[in-house]
Design a protein around this nucleic acid. Sequence first.
DNA 1: GGTGCGGGCTAACGTGTGTTAGTTTTTATA
DNA 2: TATAAAAACTAACACACGTTAGCCCGCACC
Lengths: 196, 196
Amino acid sequence: MAKIKTSEPGSKKEIIQKVAAALFREKGFRATSMRELAASVGIEAASLYNHIDGKNDLLISICFKVANNFTRKISEVEASDSNMLEKVELLLRFHVHEMVNDYDYVYVSDREWRNMEEPELTRYREMRRLYRRRFTNIVEKGILRGEIKKLDANTAVMIILNSISAVDQWHRIVHKVSAKDLEDNMVSIFIDGLRK
Amino acid sequence: MAKIKTSEPGSKKEIIQKVAAALFREKGFRATSMRELAASVGIEAASLYNHIDGKNDLLISICFKVANNFTRKISEVEASDSNMLEKVELLLRFHVHEMVNDYDYVYVSDREWRNMEEPELTRYREMRRLYRRRFTNIVEKGILRGEIKKLDANTAVMIILNSISAVDQWHRIVHKVSAKDLEDNMVSIFIDGLRK
DNA sequence: GGTGCGGGCTAACGTGTGTTAGTTTTTATA
DNA sequence: TATAAAAACTAACACACGTTAGCCCGCACC
């Protein structure tokens, strides 16, 4: 089975991965050809295979790098002694932060993961499902404790997660308002709503 | 230029379009082959071309059908005499409604439009941009009038639009809570936030 | 100064794709 | 029932794709 190891920073392999993430985001995984990727890196298509195992492994690396990141974070949040509303806020801020700092990777892992092959596809789905479940548990606990208003926790989590999953507008917005303001805006909307 | 006409309901062309929308949603536009589509319809790939112009025209039809729908709706909302917060709510409810009732079409138009070819791609981008702009104007006016709290209107609209753009979870959720409850949950979160 | 090898190259293979051409079958109408 | 149009079929084309095979250059190292 394919290993999901991270290559050391600055290596050619890592460069290829970065360029691939950018292309996959821009045009989609399937719409990006290895010849195109190679040209963007500055070599021939065949030369790519001196560094990587194939197109699918590129996608796998990207997706699991992000998934591991979020899984690690939610464990940390669960272990913290904040109340549930604060935990939601922590996760919200982390999502925005990751999106701003690792746009290509997060976007691709969110929109292109379907193109992975088995068995990684199933494993990824499971990680995703579990993450949502843990997030939902936090919201549900918050409702039980009276910190969060009564609503369907699944819907709430779905909305929150989707709202962050990117559009091409992210960067344009971040250039107008600062990353910090963006975070605060999002938290403000979700915690207290639009109404003045 | 390709015409974006709607075929009469029940026609074979419409059936093909519907099946195509379902497949494009499930597997992505590029990952769906004409042979696969044909098999789903119950004919041979070549036979499709007695009814449609090609793969790209399928995507074009789907995308513009949805885009026209939303453009029509926002004109209607703008013309109504509700206040700005109510207008946001009207649009929110419409988005949820369309997503629930026309899942495949809305999903595909939202996630696969990049695969369109020129000149439709540019035209679609423009429609999308304009829609967001009109939505943003409503929010901005709401802020000026003191109905909506002070925040970056672009961020707010981006969040709202993204939050609705689908996940594979939509249907599962709709089967657990009713479509009406889903709508109310969303409106509640966005208007008044999560806090109790 | 030879040598191993990382990393680039060209050429090509096999496959799957969207689409067309040409033909036959089915359906509707007179 | 005859006939024309609609809609299915088979066969094939041209192309783009991911990937492999085999080669060659230049650099580090004994």
